[in-house]
Nucleic acid binder design. Structure first.
Length: 283
DNA sequence: AAGCGGACCTGCGGGC
DNA sequence: TGCCCGCAGGTCCGCT
């Protein structure tokens, strides 16, 4: 589920439950996710106030009053589920413990935030807030696609001379942060670029044209997730994700939606991952 | 040195 | 019903 729009949706969903609130107790039910948890994680979380919830790429950062920040990645299957809301503001959609509830944050306001991740590709770590950017997992990540540092000049320079398919290049988090398989497919469809095209051999003007398309695709997806959040039903972005209709992702053999196009969406595998595209509209 | 495949995990749906 | 296969929203690591 979690590419940038879903992670942003999660962040926004958690914000009213966690920001400004104290973590009264951190329930850590196993020693690791993708990697071992940092030493004494539960103790270092206990009693800390969450001063701010931020997002960098697909990571959520919870700044704590101790001067540390909790870094969270949802991997492929991670969710953040809210329950136990004392104000009746949120729907109790996760009332009982379930399989793969690896970490539960018991907040001072009575709410519980449960990190559930069947595949355990997710991650958590603690780092000094002041030097968060130099953390190993964050230090080589490229510009935020919705920020000013991501622009035509940057993308043209980053793709120049690249011998890799444009699909792989846009998935490369060092070039631009936050894109994943779904939104790269959707971006290339809108841009009319075949996913197998070598990144360095696409005209600069077309590369530049990817910038506003990427922004649009991500902003639309965030908006779709946001409509879910207004109901405060859940904080995993899932409803927003499934409500969102994709033009190509997951639509193999279905008709292309471009005006006048009679072709079907095709699927190829690139570096082990599915790429969906229209063979007529994307060259 | 860039670029590729493998590895890490569990769950689900389809075919036999 | 059960088993086996392929597939899944990520990304680090180690090998050419």
């Amino acid at each position: 589920m979690p590419e940038l729009p879903e992670v942003e949706t999660v962040r926004r969903g958690l914000s009213p439950v966690m920001e400004g609130e104290v973590i009264a107790r951190a329930e850590v039910n196993r020693p690791d996710l993708r990697w071992p948890f940092p030493p004494d994680m539960a103790a270092r979380l206990t009693g800390q106030r969450v001063t701010q919830l931020r997002r960098r790429s697909k990571y959520i950062l919870a700044d704590l009053s101790s001067g540390e920040s909790l870094l969270v990645h949802l991997g492929m299957s991670g969710r953040m589920l809210i329950s136990g809301d004392p104000l009746g503001q949120f729907v109790h959609d996760h009332p009982a413990p379930e399989k793969h509830d690896h970490v539960v944050f018991h907040m001072g306001n009575g709410a519980r935030v449960t990190f559930n991740d069947p595949r355990r590709f997710g991650a958590m770590d603690l780092l000094d807030t002041a030097s968060a950017d130099s953390h190993k997992l964050l230090s080589s990540i490229g510009p935020e696609p919705l920020g000013n540092d991501f622009n035509e000049d940057h993308l043209i320079a980053a793709l120049k001379g690249k011998n890799t398919p444009i699909k792989s290049a846009l998935l490369d988090q060092r070039i631009v942060a936050g894109l994943g398989n779904i939104y790269v497919c959707e971006t290339l469809y809108r841009a009319g670029i075949h996913p197998a095209r070598k990144a360095g051999r696409i005209a600069a003007k077309r590369v530049g044209g990817l910038v506003p398309i990427i922004r649009d695709v991500l902003n639309e997806a965030i908006t779709a997730g946001g409509s879910t959040l207004r109901d405060f039903k859940r904080a995993d972005g899932e409803l927003g994700y499934f409500q969102h209709s994709f033009d190509v992702y997951g639509r193999e053999a279905e008709p292309c939606r471009s005006e006048g196009c009679t072709h079907q969406i095709a699927r190829i595998v690139q570096s082990g991952r599915s790429s969906f595209y229209c063979p007529q509209c994307q060259r």
